[in-house]
Design a protein around this nucleic acid. Structure first.
Lengths: 365, 365
DNA sequence: GTGAAAGCGCTAACAC
DNA sequence: GTGTTAGCGCTTTCAC
């Protein structure tokens, strides 16, 4: 047993130490912190002061033992190195900190089993879970959401609350933009095959294109990074269109880079649109026109919904909570060379509008 | 009281449920998991099977009550939205997951008080702390490291183990590179005033420059982001040199952008070097020459050191653990216009080597 | 090898 | 209002 010889620096100060010093029962100390109203004002204040002097810190772990909340939230991301998730994490972290919650970060590293393992490990310690771009099956998620409050990002699952950007509107704006510039055929460069978001983006684009009387086709899947985009550019070049919309910015940047490397001009010959609006989209040359997803807000909203559920709100299981997107126009999109009257159009016409041949001859070198 | 009527989906399965089902004492079940050697092989196996059937999950929280490890590590970063930290977090997360630890992420949001609050909140629940780019004072950190194992990133503090990139070597390589290209005066664009890393980088550069008979001066401080760089470019243009090394890549990219905006050519008129080698450094035009910090490795090493300490290794409190850096040469650096015989040099000479005037006249427009 | 019992720090019942 | 008591799920003595 440790002597009660005062504040021992090594052993944390407990509620008992405070109680003894204040001359009250431990439960009173506990109440002074958790239910201030139920303790006489004077007593509460005295306890607080003594607690501060002694350096008492409430231990969230012990508090949690009887099944009480831990004030920790697990945030599961597919890949923390991906700038998209960094922004989401930031938003989530802010919203959580604001309410006194702490974030437990689990990085699935784009791998199903890692994701499972990470969740298994953290689930028991947290009050709820936010799944950002999960690879789990709908049923697995639904099962999980029976155990603990769960909010899913970027994906819609019946009976599970979810937050996502307005894909339909975002892609429609992108298609309109391209249409206005005179492009009438759009290639969608797909991301990961298993991705729910990819399917959603493609469907949104296809529907929007149909409504605008534009032709849309899809190539892929490709890994959602710059190298994937370079790869995609090569595939694309075999059967080009004048406009491309990519699954995400990284892929779009890779496409631009691949195209440029083949001697294809962007936006002169091909216009390219990304999705997400990551920092690099603004920094590349030409700047990337992209659909801006409200990443930060997504993270924050997901946490807010989750905390509402954790703190007893009814599981809001209706429609997905949709956040507005907007189109950010930069230099990677421009008038189609078929667009009459525009300088770029004339230039394109002058070259016989056949950069395809150019590409072929170059890559044959 | 809950009836012992079998696996109730809502209530988590406890060690007692397993014990009852297996016909052994709870302590035996506990041993079977924590100290497998001390239980007869057959018994242990039977317990394991039953545990799996029942869906038993060990509760890390309850386990932690008597002061035992929680297998959680707090990672405190200055700004999770900064790509540098994202890479560190990634490395840390991997190393932690590998050893069965979970990461508790605290984002200080570049704010002292937030940082303090975040640490206070998470400290009691974790086995140790990794501080990445903290703003805390040396003494506060030292104090903290008496309570729990602490590893500091990118900073050297007596008596506290730390991991950092080899600033001296990295900046020396950058200076050598610039020297070889014929630059003899280097401007260092400083980052945040309070940053330990900034001071270290500047001192390293100054010392390296002295050894190479190059002149080095410093301007700043500037916010360590693209806008800060644009700002810095304006200041720099008033008294330019032919070479710039910036505190980090974001700042360097901003400088390049600012310079380009003023009609200054990079690298034709000014060579620019960054630090960190973030993704965007490769994507911008021209590509940014930069000192690559081993971000991912830093995160992973920090965790490895910390876990060694957590698991009883002596607090390795000697020299900081230094990780190798390397210079990545891209398009933002080129021969000084004073370099005789080189095409770029001639071009520079032809223009009278006086882009300073050009800048002035342009900005006067 | 295994069981019984004590206790981690805290909160929730229940008394007074 | 405040003290007393009984746990939370688990690990760790200490017996046997």
């Amino acid at each position: 047993m440790v002597q009660d010889g005062g504040a021992d620096a090594s052993r944390p100060v407990t509620i008992y130490d405070v109680a003894r010093a204040a001359g009250v029962a431990p439960s009173t100390v506990s109440r002074a912190f958790s239910r201030p109203g139920r303790v006489k004002a004077g007593t509460a204040e005295r306890i607080r002061e003594i607690a501060v002097t002694l350096g008492y810190r409430t231990s969230p772990l012990a508090r949690a033992v009887p099944g009480a909340p831990t004030r920790m939230i697990a945030l599961v991301v597919a890949d923390i190195a991906n700038p998209v998730f960094a922004a989401i994490v930031r938003g989530a972290q802010e919203a959580a900190a604001e309410r006194g919650y702490v974030l437990l970060l689990a990085d699935a590293q784009e791998d199903d089993r890692q994701e499972r393992a990470a969740i298994e490990r953290s689930l028991p310690s947290v009050d709820g879970v936010v799944l950002a771009a999960t690879r789990m099956s709908d049923s697995a998620i639904r099962m999980m959401s029976k155990q603990k409050p769960v909010v899913v990002l970027n994906r819609s699952i019946p009976d599970v609350p979810c937050v996502m950007p307005d894909y339909a509107r975002g892609l429609r704006r992108a298609a309109e933009h391209l249409g206005e510039l005179g492009h009438d055929r759009i290639t969608y460069v797909a991301g990961p095959a298993a991705s729910w978001a990819d399917g959603m983006r493609w469907r949104s684009l296809r529907d929007a294109a149909a409504g605008l009387h534009l032709a849309a086709r899809r190539i892929g899947p490709f890994p959602p990074d710059v190298d994937g985009g370079v790869l995609a550019a090569a595939t694309f070049a075999a059967q080009p269109t004048s406009a491309v919309i990519a699954y995400n910015d990284l892929l779009a940047i890779g496409v631009v880079r691949g195209l440029l490397g083949m001697g294809v001009r962007v936006p002169g010959d091909v216009s390219v649109v990304g999705f997400d609006n990551i920092l690099a989209a603004e920094l590349v040359t030409p700047g990337l026109t992209t659909v801006a997803a409200p990443l930060h807000t997504e993270g924050a909203e997901a946490i807010r919904h989750l905390l509402a559920m954790v703190e007893g709100a009814p599981t809001h299981t209706g429609q997905p909570f949709v956040l507005p997107t907007r189109l950010v126009v930069r230099g990677s999109t421009g008038p189609s060379s078929r667009m009459p009257g525009h300088p770029a159009a004339r230039a394109g016409t002058a070259r016989g509008n056949s950069w395809q041949l150019l590409v072929r001859s170059r890559s044959a070198e």
